[in-house]
Nucleic acid binder design. Structure first.
Lengths: 172, 172
DNA sequence: AAGATTTAGTTGACGTGTCACGCTAACACA
DNA sequence: TGTGTTAGCGTGACACGTCAACTAAATCTT
């Protein structure tokens, strides 16, 4: 067991392509969002979560759970976005520790402007490249990976807690 | 064409799992490296490239090409790693603009210490989760993705320019 | 050989992401 | 009622990563 060469050259090739492919795809999506709407991918994701929530607002912790981010990360990101006017922080009436993060009108506008192109990009650079069979395989493997890693937070996130009358059904 | 809902719920599920799975896997690998050898994944990758090169040294630009990183990124990373004593910068005799980046003894030690566990982790969290058929599919899709995105630098990197007497054959 | 251009590499500013720590409010319970 | 614990969030430091601007050496041009 476990001479390094146990992993075949082919396998390393696969790993390389998987690893770099992921990075390159996300980088490309990010660049596209920047160009189209002037927002980053993390900003898009955060605003999307808010958009999909009741009143376009969520508590910091809910946001973290929704995005599978650390709360600290959410805090930093919200701070930057608040400075840009994309979201607002509001005190929580029922829990003085709590904070509501609310999508602003500007935020909504940008989100909606971005969504179409972003979705098209994901389709063109991801979905359209695969047959249905390949999608099944990829999905199965990805799920398996997450479950396997999935000690703590990884197993949870099968979207629940939705609301709103059919907002743009997008994930990325 | 291109109502957002063109993308099925299943497809979004796939995208989510693929997207987060990748992030989580890399995060897990990084954490493992930190714990085992006290180095980050980028540090590991950079040192591995050096290790595999003649004299354990490469020019900044070669390093960038090898890793598919921007030169600026290499520069920053090397600066941090030089401060930690993992690599050294050395003037280039034949081209006064050039810089050789050389793996130090400390760097080598850490790299070697890290390699075994890192490889095991990749095997356990990636390779072992897939059948050979699934590997083929994943590899094909990843390659297709990179080629599709692959305007500029994406098409190049099929490892060339190897040297050295069989160093740890690892990629990640 | 003078001047323009290209190439190698660095730097600073800034967004992203994690970790360790700290703070206050809510809560449990003696 | 006080006291210890936990939950919700923020902050500062630092690593990662990109972009635009920069320096200086090499190279090309005429």
């Amino acid at each position: 067991m476990s001479t390094v060469s146990e992993v075949s050259e082919q396998d390393w090739e696969l790993w390389r392509d998987y690893f770099r492919g992921g990075r390159e795809l996300v980088a490309a999506l990010d660049k596209r969002l920047q160009g189209d709407a002037g927002i980053s991918h993390p900003e898009y994701l955060l605003m999307l979560s808010l958009w999909e929530a009741a009143e376009h607002s969520l508590r910091t912790g809910e946001l973290a759970e929704e995005l599978s981010w650390e709360k600290s990360r959410v805090s930093h990101q919200v701070a930057r976005m608040e400075a840009r006017g994309l979201v607002e922080r509001r005190e929580c009436e029922t829990d003085a520790r709590g904070v509501w993060v609310v999508l602003t009108a500007d935020g909504s506008r940008l989100l909606l402007r971005a969504t179409r192109d972003h979705t098209d990009a994901i389709r063109a650079w991801f979905f359209d490249l695969m047959s249905d069979d390949e999608k099944r395989v990829l999905g199965a493997v990805a799920q398996r990976m997450r479950e396997n890693l999935g000690t703590v937070c990884a197993s949870v996130p099968l979207r629940r807690r939705r609301s709103q009358a059919t907002p743009p059904k997008v994930c990325a």
